[in-house]
Write a protein that binds this DNA or RNA. Sequence first.
DNA 1: GCTAAACGGAGACTACCTCCCCGGTTATTT
DNA 2: AAATAACCGGGGAGGTAGTCTCCGTTTAGC
Lengths: 211, 211
Amino acid sequence: MTEPRLRADACRNRERILAAACEALVEHGPEVSIEEIARRAGVGNATIYRRFCGRHDLLHHVGLEVLGVLTEEAERARAEEVDALSALRRFAHRASNRSLAAVLPMVYGQTADDEPLHAARERLLGLVKNLMTSAQTTGMMRNDLCLGDFLTALAKLTRPLPGSPRPVVDTVRRQIDLLIDGLRTQRCCTCPERPASSRTHAGPVGSTTDD
Amino acid sequence: MTEPRLRADACRNRERILAAACEALVEHGPEVSIEEIARRAGVGNATIYRRFCGRHDLLHHVGLEVLGVLTEEAERARAEEVDALSALRRFAHRASNRSLAAVLPMVYGQTADDEPLHAARERLLGLVKNLMTSAQTTGMMRNDLCLGDFLTALAKLTRPLPGSPRPVVDTVRRQIDLLIDGLRTQRCCTCPERPASSRTHAGPVGSTTDD
DNA sequence: GCTAAACGGAGACTACCTCCCCGGTTATTT
DNA sequence: AAATAACCGGGGAGGTAGTCTCCGTTTAGC
């Protein structure tokens, strides 16, 4: 049964294609062209068609990969952080890496009635929902919020605006901290007191460092 | 000197085109097609070319109009609200109507070195900047934030995610309130204690009511 | 009711996108 | 190190969609 294992370079290219697809999706929206993804990945467009059978299949695998990473992050955050709100904050930060949270809405629209994708999604939603209710029942988080508020806010903040040369990671992080602080019941500043740069727009272009 | 005044129907159509362009821009991104805008406005595409000389000119006027409305809103908010933070909140709510705040980043990328647009933009930025420093010096708003943090967050939250049938106004409002609460120095819940719907995603599709 | 302004649709032309084929390149195996 | 099979990028055919213009018809305003 199949999967004769990919050659090393083919495997590398497959990863690159998936990563490029994520980037391209969040920047250009759901109907980004295959050519654009290929350009970004630094491969010929034929390579994409060789590895995936068509657009739908590509997006399917993008979705699966992203959902997998996020689910794992949610589990680790829950396990390694002491309280639910810190876990949510950590999860949010991880989800902002490579705009992961913003990829999902782009994929869903294009892959209707895709069963495994739907299942993976429900699993992630369940985990985050648990974190939220846990934070709420322990009194750390306000009660007038539902899952959708948090997740769509996360997706929106994570998604880069067109025109920004490279998403300034620092800004996104700060915005997420702001959001989390808004979620809190009591004020307890989690945001490092980084002096505000008085410049109007983006500061130095930060590298996408992992947390 | 020129501007022989438009006929009533032409004038109406011009408004419709500008409004449709805003909608289309925030939904499809900066390189949305003229055809799509015409479809949305319910006019033939020739009508757009009759009223504006090309894509650049259309976006220029979209930008001017949006900047004009937002500037006026900022001034009114400052004049009519008692404190700077309330003014910011009010401004943010108004800017979320018709996704106004999200239109601007779409326009800027396409209209480089457009002097009047740039001037109008600086004017608005100045007003908002004043509101922010005012809120900060009176101790209502945390100091580790700059103009860009607030404005890009506003633009992102205001921009609809692809796939959402109609932006659920209620959700956007709540997210903005969350953001403003995150800005505060002390907790003082501005958010009406609307009981959280436990449903996973969007609740009822709200109409885009003005504030 | 007349006239000039405005309208929508259709058409020419272009650009880009999808998908496949082919001659050259590279990883792997012995 | 040579053989071989997997893999690669570029280019091309066919198709779709976009931009902008022309033209016969409709409509607002006097």
